[in-house]
Amino acid sequence: MGDNTEVFRGIRKVPGISYPVLTPNLKGFESALEAGAEEVAVFGAASDAFSLKNVNCTAAEAIERFRPVLKAAQKHGGIRVRGYVSTVVGCPYEGAISPLAVVKVVEALHKMGCYEISLGDTIGVGTPGSMRRMLDEVVKAVPPENLAVHCHDTYGQALSNILVSLDYGIRVVDASVSGLGGCPYARGASGNAATEDVIYMLHGLGLETGVQLEKLIGVGRYICSQLGRPSESKVNRTWKGATTS
């Protein structure tokens, strides 16, 4: 990769690419700092039941754990902190989630200093209707430029929900190459929206992403071949021009 890269715990860093580290508490932050992280992430939930299963504390208790992380990040040269909120429209234990419950967590993360908060439909039950109801309230509390969406595709609604978020001025979308991943707390929950499909849609809307779709498809095919599993991306399955080289 040339001389403009540096090694970060085995990862050869490329200029212009962010390498955030998930840090649920101060101990995690200190370990990330020691490893050379320049950006970290904290993750909460709009559902108490989900939070208890995931990190063994309520949503409010999780917020309190984040405060020392944000303070430490500011103390150590202003390390950027991204916030995540899980189950923003539905929870496998509580069912439908009130938009005001989401606002409470998002607003707290924003006030603590998270530069961006990702809104996660963790189990992929959201629809354009439930996304709109949630975003109607959230954008009253936090500007769209400080928000991102993280849509799982369990019911095939991820692209539709992302499209809705664009109407609200949100321009950051979390995605996973070939839709890899999932949620261990929800039976049948698939991975995040496939990056290939998201990029194809955004390019079709005339939006500039800086991503070369054909090379991305090649990456997805290579990873899936190594894992011995098919790609979850419809674009990847259909595309004829990409190779795994």
Rank of each mutant, 00 (worst) to 15 (best):
L109H: 05
E107N: 09
V40P: 05
K111E: 14
T87Q: 13
A35M: 13
R67E: 12
V88K: 09
A41W: 11
C91L: 05
G83C: 03
V69A: 05
G83K: 08
P99R: 01
E61V: 08
T58L: 03
V81K: 07
L26F: 03
T58K: 06
E30R: 14
L33P: 07
G90W: 15
E34C: 12
V102G: 01
A72K: 14
F66M: 03
H110L: 10
V105R: 10
K53F: 05
V102K: 00
V81N: 06
Y93Q: 08
A37W: 10
L70A: 02
A35V: 09
E94T: 00
G36E: 10
I117M: 10
M112Q: 04
R80K: 14
A108D: 06
G83R: 09
V106E: 01
V55M: 08
A41H: 10
S86Q: 13
L70D: 08
E61C: 08
V106S: 04
V42D: 01
C114P: 00
L100V: 12
G95Y: 03
F43S: 11
K111R: 15
E116S: 12
H76I: 12
A96G: 12
V40Q: 06
S118F: 06
G28Q: 05
G28W: 07
E34F: 14
A41S: 15
I117H: 00
A46G: 04
K71Y: 11
